[in-house]
Amino acid sequence: MIALTGTPRPALPQLRLMGIAVPIAVLLALVPSFANSYQTLLLAYGLIIAIAGLGFNLLLGYTGLLSFGHSAYFGTGAYAVAFMAQDLGVRSMEAYILCGLALSAIVSAVFGFICVRHTRIFFGILTLALSQVLWSLALKLFWITGGSDGLRVPRPTLLGGMLTYTGGGFPRFISYYYYYVLVLFVVCVLVMWMIVHSPFGKALQAIRDNETRAAFLGLRVRRFRWVAFLISGVYTGLAGVLWVPLNGLTTPDILYWPFSGEIVFLTLLGGFRNFTGPIVGGIVFTFLKTYAVATTEYWQILLGVVLVVLVLVLPTGIVGALAQLIGRLWPQRAD
């Protein structure tokens, strides 16, 4: 369940994480030097969506709760940035992040408090209904939110202006912003790794596997679920904050429930029983969707077929399937 392989757990998971993660991080850091700015842009989108997927998977994969309303927290982050840029004239990315995190924390704390009273299908429907409250407000209160036209967001200043990209145009902004996103992404991955391997993370998994037993062990099931919901929402909110400057515009579409469906989709694509699943899923999904949209008007059908095939044939996702393949090729590896 930990990393890429299904073989027995090694004695030092941290060491193996380093062995896999460091080369990948170095590779990701080198991307702007050999890829063009469009590819870099797509990868930045992918990393951002992967952050949302990581947060979402703390609920689905580790706590066993399927939320169909994570668009709410993504949208909260995105609209927080748009309001600050438009109404307060703030241009600092760091301020965006702080306020976006705070606001998505508040929204997910409130929504989570309500939603964790239920599990299974009712949890899903309740998260969906609450996220649609925000969507309808964003759509209808057009004098604040711009309605379906959305709000424009100018490019922010990074690190209080220390990273200047003026004069370099879009390509320079992208390469700087890519590194900005990459650093936050690495931080997010490390923090999430620590969370799921902490006693708290183990408690969540115990609750997922057997709620009654966990309760009898003295775990306060609802409180744990609530905190997991909160962390999950904040991660998704951060993804929303980072997403807006790249997109330049925020519209109610990112609050509408099919967007929640996309977050579920990418997590399943990568594999929700793995730590790395949503990361792989987020990046693959971004490229898959971009190329599908570019190639055909009927990209939704492609995504739909992929999703149905995944559920029917490959329920463990890309990472799970790879792990099974590796496990079959090198059985009983002496770890």
């Binding site: 469906g261 989709f265 009927y298 990209w299 939704q300 739909g304 149905v308 029917l312």
Partner: peptide
């Protein structure tokens, strides 16, 4: 599409019908 899923967790049923939604929307557009 649905029969293979009755024994599995209900999350999968939700997902397969979401996939079906995406497919149907585009079939109508097509």
């Amino acid at each position: 599409l649905l029969r293979p899923l009755y024994r599995r967790a209900e999350e999968y049923q939700l997902l397969v019908t979401f996939g079906l939604l995406l497919i149907l929307e585009d079939v109508m557009r097509f």
